[in-house]
Design a protein around this nucleic acid. Structure first.
Ligand SMILES: [Mn+2]
Ligand SMILES: [Mn+2]
Ligand SMILES: [Zn+2]
Ligand SMILES: [Zn+2]
Lengths: 133, 133
DNA sequence: TTTCAAATGCAACTTAGTTGCATTTTCATT
DNA sequence: AATGAAAATGCAACTAAGTTGCATTTGAAA
């Protein structure tokens, strides 16, 4: 059951089980694409406090529960670890609807960086048109 | 000479040769990495008007003279065309100093996107440490 | 040298996100 | 169940990046 999983996610990191956090994680677990602050607020209700929501997004991100994808001035969040935490996957950005999807990355690429530069993570953004557009 | 090149860049696109534009292009031509609004303003003088500078950055971008790289909430600009204009190169972001460098991209990568999704451009961001850090 | 569209400068606005602080809530302990 | 401390919330005020409206100035074509 989803509820048990959410409790587990929070408990393991010593995060308190609040109403918003549970709703937030529920929403992330069923989301098909990365969510912006406004999308989340729209889904969870207008009465959700801005600071609290942003603070929880940051908390979850730092706890490795969700990861952030920056997209032309607005941050979007998706469930799971990001590239920085060793989870290698790419992001698909739809030119039409601006939706960001997490997609599996197959086949690594080697790029030669200038001398003295040290590569840690290679992240990929695929721009194109999604199946709904 | 650089001056002639700048005149050419502007003239070809019917852009007027103003003081700021010339200074701006000069700065871009000698920049070793992508520049933010604040870096440009710092270099060209505090008296530079915010609106005018931003408007020129947009104008240059639309004219294909410079390209924008979004980096965690701040736009950075570098001379030349970007990936969206067919010029395929990657961006190196230093974790330490947050500097963004344009680097040559060798060897194409194919990633399989979900059915119905159409790939247009694949852009790469390499995170790591630059030679100065 | 006149003309006028393009560019500038300034102030006011917007949007995304942050911060300080008083109040409330969770959760562990008694 | 009652207590209490730390964590989380809610609200308002703030910041930082970028945009917009409008009056004034300027570049360059005629
Ligand atoms: Mn992702
Ligand atoms: Mn570049
Ligand atoms: Zn789409
Ligand atoms: Zn560096």
């Amino acid at each position: 059951m989803k509820h048990a999983m959410i409790d587990d996610l929070l408990q393991k990191r010593g995060l308190k089980r609040t109403k918003l956090r549970i709703a937030l994680l529920n929403h992330f677990l069923s989301a098909k694409h990365a969510l912006s602050y406004l999308e989340i607020k729209g889904a969870l209700g207008e009465n959700v406090d801005k600071s609290t929501l942003y603070r929880n997004l940051t908390t979850f991100e730092e706890a490795g529960i969700i990861h952030r994808i920056d997209h032309s001035g607005v941050a979007k969040y998706a469930f799971g670890k990001g590239q920085n935490d060793g989870h290698h996957h790419a992001h698909f950005v739809c030119d039409q609807c601006e939706t960001v999807y997490c997609v599996e990355k197959t086949g690594a690429t080697t790029i030669n960086v200038p001398k003295g530069f040290k590569t840690k993570v290679v992240q990929m953004i695929i721009r194109g048109t999604c199946s709904y557009c």
